[in-house]
Design a binder for these strands. Structure first.
Lengths: 347, 347
DNA sequence: AAAACTTACGGGAACGTTCCCGAAAAAAGA
DNA sequence: TCTTTTTTCGGGAACGTTCCCGTAAGTTTT
């Protein structure tokens, strides 16, 4: 499609001054007669003049655009995080191009290419479920494109990262389950290539260890982040083990799936089995029973990622910072009530 | 931030040919020696040359960018619809800039300005809850910017629109409720300034009329599209009326809120009161009991909106088309079972 | 062997900005 | 009155592309 907008030259001709003067007047420069400035402004206002962003960008050698890659749109976490990213970027006068990898490594590579072709000035990325390699991200590094990883980050890679304290969040949550009387706590973990999965699992294991509960391989199973995965994993856990009294899921979606499976088996939540999740998606408050979960500051995660990116844009030499946000435990109905005689101190 | 990429001139100097030849070679033009073409391609590949999108755009007078305005990110409907919009746009080689109005008319106006400043070639918009005026949209029209409305459209405005058959969806759903034995069916409607709300309400009213059930103002209440609104509206309905045996909500979120309120009152769903929603968000299958709802082809709505926009980009003279997608009824657990002796034909 | 045509390439303008530099006019100082 | 300074403005290059046009060779036709 052709655009045919009013240009600075048109205004110059109409007002019988040079384009330089128009340019200066519009940017409210000092060395232009107040009277002509007024005239130019008025004319531009009346005709709704808008500078061509591409011409401006070409001249200033900046695109004022950043890119974001997320695994999927329909994960509520990312909807909210994107909001945080974008609000801050807009405030900085930047546009945001969002891509989704559809949880596929191959698509993620294509996303990176698409963003490079759009000449974005920086990229914020949360990797796909099956992304183990990082060659595509290293490429960005080599090209000097500022980069921020968030939530699902890749290990042993030097770049600013925004995560939550996955380990302590999990530790605290499992501690809480233990305090409510759970002893046979199962864990449905996430893909092992993601740091997040391992940290949450480590928190789970350490909580057990601290309570002198032996770990049991039969109580651990690896899923991905989907509801379906939660259902099938729960199913398998129940087949292998009949004494489970608690579930700690790597994320809320998996917890929802686990709850669904438990309901199908006619198992009461939390009377027979407590269920806990991680993230605190909006849905968590709505399911029945409502889900006890580790609450992440989702919007702030996005906002922080955005801030780190812009900090890098201003100073490319900035050392890579690891930003760890705090979580809290949101107690709802899917876990047993805390026995009031038990200890009531918890982080 | 400054960008310092490889340009066509750099390649020209390195290979000792003119930039014209480089340009031609890269675009695989016919009038360039296969040998030099090979050399240029190889060089570009090796150094990961990417044409400057702004220079190209300035020259070709196109930004290859479209804009989307949605009310909010955290409405699952829009997450999915955006996916449909974007997938198609990407396929067409376009980038997408997404803005959210935060359900505020004022912000929506700012969004339009932001997109105009980004020189988007077209805009897809779903208006905010309280958007009654359309001056900002008319402005786009005046400027000749292709436009498509979807889901929440504004009445008496000539532009391509993508909606579902709200009237028939509602009619069929309320018909179904009646067939399952409901007689006192309440309706929590949406904001009256939106066509969608009125059409769904009309469907509700006509279904009642067709079954010779008198309409009752006490059974109708206006909410917005939020869970909270669903809760408070349900609360009010219960205070005014004790014989309700069915609820038809304008959307799933409102239905979720209504269910929450009913549970708080200890009212059994669907034994005492059936609840039906509209949209079929992913959540609908997860809540307890799972929600019977009118199923919209959400991804396709977005995809269709995108298609209509690109059709307009290709031919600006194209007449404004109203695209109405079909809905189906997704029966789940929140409504009473259909009496097997009753008629089993329904649309 | 001259004419016509093809192949392959270079020069330069253009897209709409910004910005540097210089210059005319007006104001101030001598 | 002549110089110096300030105010105000215009000219033109530059950003990285594309594309039109011209032209030098090489190839075919007469």
């Amino acid at each position: 499609m052709k655009k045919s907008n009013l240009t600075i030259n048109d205004i110059a001709k109409a007002l019988n001054v040079s384009k330089s003067t128009i340019s200066r007047a519009l940017r409210d420069a000092h060395d232009v007669n107040p009277e002509t400035k007024r005239k130019v402004m008025a004319f531009a206002e009346r005709h709704d003049y808008r500078p061509d962003s591409q011409a401006k960008g070409l001249r200033s050698r900046s695109t004022k655009t950043i890119g974001v890659i997320i695994p999927a749109y329909n994960i509520p976490f990312y909807s909210i995080a994107i909001c945080g990213i974008q609000d801050y970027a807009m405030k900085m006068g930047y546009n945001v191009i969002i891509c989704h990898s559809n949880e596929q490594y191959e698509t993620e590579i294509k996303n990176v290419e698409a963003l490079l072709n759009a000449n974005v000035e920086g990229i914020i990325i949360s990797v796909a479920r099956d992304t183990a390699k990082n060659e595509h991200i290293r490429k960005l590094r080599r090209k000097g494109i500022p980069l921020v990883l968030f939530n699902r980050v890749i290990e042993d890679f030097k770049a600013p990262k925004v995560v939550v304290n996955d380990y302590y969040g999990a530790l605290n949550m499992v501690n809480y389950l233990i305090k409510t009387g759970c002893r046979k706590i199962a864990h449905i973990s996430g893909p092992a290539n993601l740091l997040l999965s391992n940290n949450r699992k480590a928190g789970y294991l350490d909580a057990l260890a601290q309570a002198d509960i032996p770990e049991d391989d039969n109580l651990m199973i690896e899923g991905d982040f989907t509801i379906e995965s939660g259902m099938t994993c729960m199913q398998k856990l129940l087949e292998k083990n009949r004494e489970i009294d608690g579930i700690f899921a790597v994320c809320d979606a998996v917890a929802f799936g686990a709850m669904k499976a438990l309901k199908n088996h006619g198992i009461k939540i939390p009377d027979t089995i407590s269920v806990a999740g991680f993230t605190n998606e909006p849905m968590a408050a709505l399911v029945e029973p409502s889900l006890t979960t580790v609450k992440q500051p989702i919007y702030e995660i996005g906002e922080t990622a955005s801030k780190l990116l812009f900090a890098q844009l201003e100073d490319p030499e900035l050392p890579a910072e690891l930003c760890v946000l705090e979580t809290t435990i949101e107690v709802r109905e899917s876990t047993r009530k805390l026995n009031s005689s038990a200890t009531d101190s918890m982080g």
